[in-house]
Amino acid sequence: MNLMKKILSLMVWGLVILIGVVPAWAITADEILDEVEARTAESETQKAIAKMILVDSKGREEVREVIMYAKDEGEDVISIIVRFLSPADVKNVTLLSLEGGESMYLYMPAYKKVRRIASSEKSEKFMGTDFTYDELGGSYSREDYDSTLIEETEEIYKLELIPRDEESSYSKLLMEVDKEKFYFRRIEFYDKDGNLWKVMEILEIEEEEDGTITVNKIDLTDLKENHKTIVEMEHIERDIPLPDNFFSVRTIQRPEL
């Protein structure tokens, strides 16, 4: 069940990083974060189908497919539905998160009932993914980090981000932001002892006609566990019409979404 919630967070994060494109010029670290956040593609509702590939230390892969619906409720609050399409033993298990996780429900077809689950979450992994709720639940905004521009090349800005939350699992993040399109190409996460722990990379993007960027493939590698999670966004629809009551326990019990 923890895994389900973390996968939900992964999907939320996947939405957040769908960012836009702007020309780059001399700029401060905070302004770079502002630009990254400001260029995030905006849509009131979204539907996405994604594939998650879990790769263990021996190179063995496990594949999970999900379908997700999300709605921006305003003020950075998102309601979301995530349903597993595969593998077979979790097929149609469906998660509902209302208003940014204020309340969460899990529908398990085998039990034929909807369970209320705790919306608070720990920072451990679940179902073998390398994502945690803590690290995926938020964006990288200047309100959450003390940021410093430490390097600039022809292609990227390199930022150092120090979490302001003392309970964060990380001592710092090193983020590489594409100078032309203002999306982060790579983030290194360092543990409390200053050791490199995880590396997140954008592997594939697609530039839309209106100049926004769709992230199609993300890789998160846990160097301590020698394990990685690759997320491929296979299909995304934005601003789809959804009924007012779509994000409800009624919907997650339906045979088809």
Partner: peptide
């Protein structure tokens, strides 16, 4: 009835 247990974060009562 079911809901989050207010005195223990991460817990649910049923």
């Amino acid at each position: 009835f079911q809901g989050e247990f207010p005195l223990l974060e991460g817990s649910t009562f049923r």
